[in-house]
Design a protein around this nucleic acid. Structure first.
Lengths: 119, 119
DNA sequence: CATGTTACATACTTTGGGGTAAGTACTTGT
DNA sequence: ACAAGTACTTACCCCAAAGTATGTAACATG
């Protein structure tokens, strides 16, 4: 989880924005390159780690678990592991994560109302 | 606007995500450190360049115009300049920018429903 | 006993977003 | 003549997020 240098203006700004702008606050939770995509796929139901990998071919395993862990720590997703071998781990939206739906839905709507046309 | 290296996996991924995930598509428009804050302030009405500066003390002038220009190019904000000296430039949400309100409002609501308590 | 499967971990490198600092144009006030 | 105000521009640097590569545990199966 790669420690962050305290006393960098970068991070100071980030923290300040999170504390003073609700939009930035949300962005700090679901922003970045991969979190949106992971959330998007989890919106259609719980998924195995390997399923997410297949659904998001471009993502590296490092990025996938890194963000899953972060979102888990922030109580946005739930990790459920069957104690078997080979492992069987399922990720799903937590109740708090489910409450993101209005936001995510609004985004999807906005995207499709514009020049976004996915397959 | 600092040219971007073609053939970097970083950017290739970004482009791919924008094209395949509506959430990422929206994030590519309103993500980053400053765009959310700028939009947040523009939600309460048109603002002068200098007003935005005062409202967002931590932002540098470079970042402010950079993002204003980007959002202007993407038709999210409108720039209106009176032809006087000293200059008088006003920024406001475009019609397309206004359509972001449901998203932004949902974010604000989510933020306040959680551990976010701004002044 | 070697190979496959699943869900990770970790050291090292790259890169692009953001920060710093300084300068510009044009006019008004003193 | 010089400072002040407004809205920028530009060159240079830094660092944290993302990418690359490789390794691990624990069993199941041929």
């Amino acid at each position: 989880m790669t420690a962050i240098k305290e006393s960098s203006t970068l991070n100071a700004n980030r923290e300040n924005n999170k504390a003073t702008c609700p939009i930035s606050f949300v962005m700090s939770k679901i922003g970045g390159h991969w979190k949106p995509i992971i959330l998007y796929h989890l919106m259609s139901g719980p998924k195995r780690y390997s399923e997410l990998k297949k659904l998001i071919p471009a993502i590296t395993e490092k990025m996938l678990i890194q963000h899953l862990k972060q979102m888990q720590q922030e109580d946005l997703v739930i990790r459920k592991a069957e104690n078997i071998v080979p492992p069987f781990v399922t990720y799903s939206l937590s109740p708090e994560g489910e409450e993101l739906r209005p936001i995510l839905d609004a985004m999807v709507e906005w995207a499709f109302a514009r020049d976004f046309f996915a397959a």
